[in-house]
């Protein structure tokens, strides 16, 4: 999935420069902490942010992009207000985890890994939440929803909308 952002102008890079000022004189090993802090500020890592980080840390943009795409913790696209993690582990699988994922995906009209247009939800899958007794299970933010039926999904998700 390619980065969706376009013009450099729409981002206020001042907070990033603030983060970078700490590492500018000693850029060795700075990349991952800088990416984490930048994501903390911007919520994700847009193209102009990555280009600025590369320039300031004297790395190539391709190297920075390589690190960002290697680690699951970094995101190239905006994230939703709420993060949904639908379990696809063994126990959830045998109890219809795939149907739950399908129901969430259909209700929000996004595929796993994507964020809704209104930036309310990001849909992710997870290999096991460790709550197999509640299978099939999903988490929304820090809340666990278990023993799910696909018909429950619209109601649960709508309850998160403010």
């Amino acid at each position: 999935m390619a980065c969706q952002c376009s013009a450099t102008g729409e981002f206020d890079l001042a907070p990033l420069m603030e983060i970078l000022s700490e590492y500018k004189d000693n850029p060795k090993g700075a990349l991952i902490p800088v990416l984490q802090k930048a994501q903390g500020v911007y919520g994700y890592l847009p193209k102009p942010v990555l280009e600025t980080i590369a320039r300031e840390l004297r790395l190539t943009t391709a190297e920075v992009f390589g690190v960002v795409t290697f680690y699951a913790q970094f995101h190239l696209n905006p994230r939703g207000k709420h993060i949904i993690r639908v379990c696809q582990g063994t126990a959830c699988h045998v109890r219809g985890g795939a149907k739950i994922l399908e129901a969430v995906s259909e209700h929000l009209k996004v595929k796993p890994g994507e964020t809704t247009r209104d930036l309310e939800f990001t849909l992710e899958t997870v290999a096991c939440l460790g709550a197999c007794g509640l299978a099939p299970v999903m988490m929304v933010d820090d809340n666990t929803h278990g023993r799910l039926n696909p018909l429950d999904i619209p109601g649960i998700l709508d309850s998160y909308l403010s």
Binding site: K47, L50, A54, T61, A62, V64, T69, F70
Partner: peptide
């Protein structure tokens, strides 16, 4: 121009973005 990007089975050599 090129870097190693993405991960695992999706690893590739590509330009940034």
């Amino acid at each position: 121009v090129y870097g190693f990007t993405w991960r695992g089975i999706n690893s590739r050599v590509s330009p940034a973005f």
